[in-house]
Every structure is written in C-alpha cells, then in structure tokens.
Simulated scan of single mutants.
Amino acid sequence: MSTEQKGLVLVVEDEAAIADLLRLYLSREGFGVHVERDGRGGLASARALHPVAVVLDVGLPEIDGTEVCRRLRADGDWVPILFCTARDDEIDRVLGLELGADDYITKPFSPREVVARVKAAVRRSGVVTASPHLVLGRVEVDRDAHKVRVDGAEVELTATEFDLLVHLMKSPGRVLSREQLLSEVWGYAAAAGTRTVDVHVAQVRAKLGDASPIRTVRGVGYSAETP
C-alpha cells in the first residue's frame, strides 16, 4: 500500500528525538508524516491537513495536548487521536479518554507499538463490512456511512467508540470480556489496559443515553442487548 493510500499521520511532539523516531517508523510503514513541536501548530495542522491519525503529546508548549484534543472534538473533528506522554497517572489517562482520545501510550514506549496502535486506530476509523446496518432497540448503526442514530437522531462517536459499539452489536447477547474487547477492538491485549475499555463503554453509554444496548455482566465483561 502506498503512502498516499495510507494517508498522513500528524505527530505533535516537542522532543525532537522522539518525533524523529516516530517519523522514521511511521514512514517505513507507508504513512506520510508531518511533525509539529507545539500545541498551537499541532491544532492548526490538524485542521488544515486532515490527517488519518494524530499522535499527540500531552505536555506541549503553547497549548497542551488535552486542550488540542478538546478543541478538535468541539470542532466535530473525530480523527483518531493517540495520546503519547510521560504521565502515567490513571487520572490523566481517564481524562484523555473522556475528552475523546482513542488510545493512550505512556513513555518510554516501543515505536513499533505506537505504529501498531496507529494502524489499528486508522483501521477502526474506516470500518466497512458487507452488512452495513445494525439495529438494536432504538439504536441504528450504518457502518458504510460510519453513523449512529438514536430514534433517527445522529449521535457523534469517536472512531474507537463506534468500533466498540459495532463489535458488541454485531453479536447481540454474546458476552465479551474486557481482555477480548481490548484485543479485538484496540488490536492489542494487556490486562493493565482494561480500564480503557471501561472508560469507552461509559462514554458510549453517556452519548446514547437510556437507548444504550450495552449491558455490564458483572465479573465477566459486556454484551449488547435490547434495553
């Protein structure tokens, strides 16, 4: 697949060595890469260049990464965002996910892991299957158009929230563990990351309200059923 087909990844990172390493590994995988060193430049480039994914440091000059993410989501821009930061506090991780980030990577990291997560996020954002429509109760998902509606009204979900909902709705009644969801939706498995699943489920439920088909199966995981 060519660079043009894979698209452009925006890396917003003020540490030159890290930015250069990410540029090298992403380029090897066929992505175009544009680097910005501060939050203001990152926000402007995200709006102007329409990347397929953004790797976003949290501790940035000018505007920090969480504010960049907040402003993009407020604009209605649901490009996959992967936070990359030295902060390893759960509060920071949860805040980033609640702002609409799709994934969270803490430093030090393997550049190969970052590339794998970028590829998974890009894949999730463009999910298309032969059976585009899913309906469960008052929730309708159009996978071709990448849209979710409740009682006919469109609801905005991030790419990861969308893929999580689709993954549960396409097998109604099937109970999936957090580890299964992390592996099948996010593309990697790590027990320490299961909190990510819980936060995204909470976000989907909040957006869908009482129409949400996602049910918690205590001690096991989640399933999708008619409310």
Rank of each mutant, 00 (worst) to 15 (best):
L181W: 05
E184H: 03
K170C: 13
E156T: 14
A202F: 02
H200Q: 11
T196E: 03
E154R: 06
H200V: 12
T158S: 15
R215D: 15
D198P: 11
D210P: 01
S183M: 08
L134W: 11
A192G: 04
V155I: 14
R195L: 06
R205E: 15
G219N: 13
A206Y: 01
A145S: 15
L134G: 09
L157A: 10
H133S: 10
R205M: 14
L208E: 12
V135I: 01
L168W: 09
I214D: 04
T158N: 13
H167I: 00
H167G: 08
E179K: 07
A159L: 11
G173E: 14
R143G: 07
A145F: 13
A189V: 04
V204P: 13
G219S: 13
V201G: 01
A159F: 01
T216C: 12
A192N: 09
G173L: 14
G209W: 10
G187Q: 02
A190P: 02
T158M: 13
H200C: 00
P132N: 06
L168T: 03
E154T: 08
Q203D: 02
R138W: 05
S212G: 01
R178C: 09
E184M: 03
D142A: 01
L136V: 00
V141N: 08
V127S: 00
V155G: 03
R205T: 15
V127W: 08
V217R: 05
G173R: 13
V155W: 06
A145N: 15
H200A: 02
R215V: 15
V139T: 09
L168I: 12
H200L: 13
